[in-house]
């Protein structure tokens, strides 16, 4: 463990376990984003409700692969002799499908991210890191301070790096939103796509408005996480890339 330091240095710098979990989560998130996009390319249609497929209406169709509106279907047959009966048709088109490795990589990375995330949150709660560094203090809620922080972000006036957890009020809210809302939401909606888990825990599809709705929410929550990553990296660059990277990696003293 790190040798005891004076108080200023201790609060100034990122802790070793924060750095380690930061980079494990970064690597697994990159693997999840790439494999997730490959999986989406296989069936770039999103639905609302319990089920959806090529023979039912989509909520959104995304032009992200040659599978987009491919139209390679036999003439459909009705299951029942009534108007508006559900139908069946055979697919005649060779679709793009790389889900063999895509799904396996996605789940492997999801295990790494989830287990690291649980360890991070538990350590963060018991060490006081989350309360001390991420939860805004009462005085930070003042209208003047929040307004000042919003204005400086809008005007792209980013304060220089501090080499440690000294966060602005918007930054704190964003980190809390990512850690306690977006990441748990992607994990829970991801689990809701599993047939074994929905059989064991039938409440899962219910809380997300259906199993296909969970997939749609999973897509939007993941997109929000990618947007967070872009903004986060932009801020790191604007506030001093070398100093920030050094603070999040091997830097020992300020």
């Amino acid at each position: 463990m790190t040798a005891p330091k004076n108080k200023t240095q201790q609060t100034n710098q990122h802790k070793g376990w924060v750095k380690l979990s930061h980079w494990i989560v970064t690597a697994s998130f990159m693997a999840l984003a790439i494999s997730g996009f490959v999986i989406l390319m296989c069936h770039p249609r999103l639905y609302w409700g319990e089920v959806g497929n090529d023979l039912t209406p989509a909520l959104i169709e995304l032009p992200v692969s040659r599978n987009y509106q491919h139209g390679g279907w036999e003439k459909s047959d009705a299951f029942f002799a009534v108007a508006g009966s559900p139908v069946s048709a055979g697919r005649t088109y060779e679709i793009f499908n790389q889900n063999g490795w895509g799904r396996s990589l996605h789940f492997l990375a999801a295990w790494v991210l989830t287990l690291t995330g649980i360890a991070y949150v538990l350590t963060g709660i018991f060490s006081g890191h989350i309360i001390r560094n991420l939860v805004p203090r009462a005085r930070e809620f003042s209208r003047k301070l929040v307004w000042h922080d919003v204005k400086s972000h809008v005007l792209f006036r980013i304060p220089p790096a501090t080499s440690g957890p000294h966060y602005g009020v918007l930054q704190k809210f964003t980190y809390l939103f990512v850690i306690f809302f977006l990441l748990p939401l992607t994990i829970m909606t991801g689990l809701t796509m599993s047939p074994a888990l929905t059989a064991a825990y039938p409440f899962l599809p219910k809380i997300f408005f259906g199993a296909q709705s969970a997939r749609t929410i999973h897509f939007f929550a993941s997109t929000a996480l990618v947007l967070f990553l872009i903004v986060h990296v932009t801020m790191v660059i604007r506030s001093g890339f070398r100093k920030q990277m050094s603070a999040m990696t091997f830097e020992q003293q300020t």
Partner: peptide, 25 residues
């Protein structure tokens, strides 16, 4: 996971259109 939990069973009216993929004959 608890062993052999039953997957949800739906009503007749919930039956949807059903694509056939892979080998179709």
């Amino acid at each position: 996971l608890p062993g052999q939990s039953l997957a949800r069973e739906y009503h007749h009216g919930d039956i949807t259109s059903f694509p056939a993929v892979g080998t179709i004959d």
